[in-house]
């Protein structure tokens, strides 16, 4: 594996080699033992992912949202339309 191939895999699979395809991860570990450039790439990705993971503070639903949902739901008559998976409410597909 070359440094460039390592970069490509790093972008595709992320900085956790444990979730890479096993053979690719094995080749990557071999490269990391001899390539300072690859080590720097991995460090950069891991640092980015560590900064990425906490992200926003815990997003709590606004107070009363559940009650508003219940109030609206129990006001409305049942519909015989199918469940709608798409962003477009007109899609009307069953799952």
């Amino acid at each position: 594996m070359t440094d460039e191939e390592f970069r490509d895999h790093l972008d595709r699979f992320g900085g956790d080699l444990a979730v890479w395809p096993p053979e690719t991860a094995r080749d990557a570990r071999a490269l990391l033992r001899r390539s300072v450039a690859a080590q720097a790439m991995l460090d950069e990705m891991v640092a980015m992912e560590l900064a990425l993971t906490p992200g926003l503070p815990e997003d709590r639903p606004p107070p009363g949202l559940a009650d508003r949902i219940f109030a609206a739901a129990f006001r409305l008559p049942a519909s015989d339309r199918g469940f709608d998976e798409d962003g477009d409410p007109a899609a009307n597909r069953l799952m």
């Binding site: 997003d59 606004p62 949902i69 609206a72 739901a73 008559p77 339309r81 469940f83 709608d84």
Partner: peptide, 26 residues
């Protein structure tokens, strides 16, 4: 927007409950 999306999705669960198919899908 998040509140709108979530409210819409959960409303759909109640409104269209008769269409929920317990048939081995997702």
């Amino acid at each position: 927007e998040a509140e709108d999306v979530v409210q819409d999705v959960f409303l759909q669960v109640w409104q269209r409950r008769s269409q929920w198919a317990d048939d081995g899908g997702a």
